[in-house]
Simulated scan of single mutants.
Amino acid sequence: MEQPNNLIIAMQNGDEKAFSNLYTMYSEAVYGIIYSIVLDENTAEELLQDVFVKVWNNATSYSVKKGRFFTWLLNIARNAAIDETRSKAFKNRRKNLNITNFVDILTSSDSLNRATNAIGLKKFVEALKPACIKIIDLLYFKGFTQAEASKTLDLPIGTIKTRNRTCINELREMVLG
């Protein structure tokens, strides 16, 4: 299989096969992030498709100078999932769930474990300090905003921002080491 950078350039030039290869490479990880936020398979599958349509339509807006492709892709996915959870339709669907769905939600509420397993980060995230694990779980795997995480953890938003930056840098060092 080609290197991701070559595939990205080819995709940006309209190569559908390169796009298909990128989808194959990244779709499972992207699905894991989306699912960990929306906790619904059908919604996650729809959003996965929407995310990759966005990637195709906005391929030229990605620049290697702005960061890694995977990070760009995950941000698109995370934002799409968060937007979906804030939509009126999503909230209405949640209100109308039957009792068996609540059992599923409760048994699958461990977003951090499932999402980190899906993208192979579990061992790295678990090696972080407990404070980092909490912040990363809330912000990246449960879809909280920094303000929501601040209220949940009863910490000033500036502290959340600083710890998030520090924790992500620690995680980056471990992964890229």
Rank of each mutant, 00 (worst) to 15 (best):
T116S: 13
K142V: 02
T24P: 00
A80S: 15
N79V: 05
N117A: 08
N92Y: 12
N92W: 06
Y23N: 10
L73G: 01
Q146P: 00
N58A: 04
N164E: 13
V175R: 04
N96S: 14
A149K: 02
G177W: 01
N5H: 12
A118Q: 09
N57V: 02
I82P: 01
L112R: 07
V53P: 00
E16A: 15
R93W: 04
K17C: 02
K123T: 12
N42E: 11
K65P: 00
I76H: 02
N117F: 07
L106G: 10
N13P: 06
N75P: 00
I76R: 06
M174T: 13
E45Q: 14
R68L: 10
F141P: 03
E2R: 13
D50F: 03
K54T: 13
S36Q: 06
I37W: 02
Q3D: 14
A77V: 01
K66W: 03
L171T: 11
S61C: 11
G158W: 02
D137F: 00
F102L: 15
I157L: 08
N6I: 10
I9T: 15
L74H: 08
G14M: 12
K91T: 01
L121V: 04
L171K: 08
P156V: 09
N164M: 03
W72M: 06
S27C: 15
E16V: 13
A81H: 05
V175L: 11
K91N: 09
T71F: 08
D50W: 00
S27L: 07
L153A: 08
E2G: 04
L171Q: 06
I33A: 07
R94N: 01
A77P: 05
F19M: 14
S36D: 04
G67V: 02
R78E: 04
A80T: 11
N113C: 04
K88M: 07
L97C: 05
E170N: 13
V38S: 02
D15I: 09
A77G: 12
S27N: 12
A80R: 11
A18T: 10
I136A: 01
T85Q: 06
Y140I: 07
P156W: 01
D83I: 00
A131F: 10
E173Q: 13
F102W: 15
